[in-house]
Amino acid sequence: MTLFENTKIVISSLFTRPATLMYPAKPAKKTANTRGHVTINPAGCITCRTCQRKCPTQAINVDVKEKTWEIDNMRCVVCAVCVDTCPTTCLTMDNQYRPAMTARGGIEKVTVAGPKKKEPAAAPANGAKPAEKKE
């Protein structure tokens, strides 16, 4: 019988549970390794700008003077290079996907701690330099 080769699969599928997930009623599958989105621990950032320089899509912008860390989520491709190269491991990869965006934007700005104060009352721009030399 070569006429109804697929019938066996179809009939067995009839009596099994659906292979699909009822998203969003049920949460999407994720694993420990899943690259969802980048998160930052503001207290740990020393504004060394390694993540900004290594980012292949130039989605990260670190302002040393203002002590801000900015990510453009529309540019970010979640490659996790910033997470790998961060010297203080303040960047982490969350395994939850970001929700879909319906409008332009997606820029997140965080005020961070800045470099560790070795010489008190020094300007932040000077303080950033030792951190850069480290890598």
């Binding site: 697929n6 599958k29 694993t31 420990a32 390794n33």
Partner: peptide, 22 residues
């Protein structure tokens, strides 16, 4: 129905890829 079945099987492969690579 074959289309659906092939993609159902593909999902197992993608699950393994996601678990190992992210």
């Amino acid at each position: 129905s074959v289309f659906m079945n092939a993609w159902r099987l593909r999902e197992h492969i993608l699950d393994d890829l996601e678990a190992t690579t992210g």
